[in-house]
Amino acid sequence: MKLPRLVLLQVFLRSFLLQASWNYEQMQSLGLLYAVTPAFRRYYTGAALLMAYRRHLEHFNTHPYLATAVIGALLRLEEQKQQGADPGFGLSEFKAAMVAPCAAMGDAFFWGALRPLVAVAALLPAFQGFWWAPLGYLLLYNFPHLGFRALGLIRGYGGGVRVVSSLQHWRLSDWSVYCKQLLLLLLGVLAALISIAATAGLGLSGAWVLCAGPLLWAVAMLMRRKISPLLVIWVLCLLSLSWSQLR
């Protein structure tokens, strides 16, 4: 049995709500059921549908963007199982095996690298006051985001367990390192822009910009010691306020 495109589209759209009922007991388990429901309705009816739901209502927690790859592969495996093929492992085991590495790759790439990279890229125009910076941010970020969601479902449903080699092939963990390096490059530009704007705004001579370097380093060292940025900001602000009062 092959699912019609429309049903796959429904699964795709529903996957956006994967975390709507995130909870501490089973994380995204209900969300997974919600997403696969259009497909399961085609596979099973009546008691068999209930059985399928019961089988799948178990611990599930992965990165929301890469979840479509797991969901797609799961649907393909359900079909293969119905046709009597034996993949050599249970579907529960398959899910359990997929979630942690997908979470690791997704966390590292999307949260740890792509999001800050795009944010810093958008902050460059934002600090110059360009109103389109937030729009640019959304466009730049959601291009890969939606791309991976769609591609994940296609590769997952198309390949079943072979989705693993696609995931391996994308090498998201390596890309996250490259993205972070690019992020640091842009961060250097941003730091320079801000220091120059600040010295100009304060009416100081150009040589003062070089002070930004050690200042940054000192605060970064504080952060390494797990001091929250909020606290640092508050202390620095109080210091400069009282200094201006004293003067």
Binding site: E93, A97, P101, M105, V164, S165, S173, V177
Partner: peptide
């Protein structure tokens, strides 16, 4: 024992 899981785990770790 599960080949695909091993592959995935390895892929989740950056080079180096």
């Amino acid at each position: 024992a599960v080949a695909f899981q091993k592959t995935l785990m390895e892929a989740a770790v950056p080079r180096g």
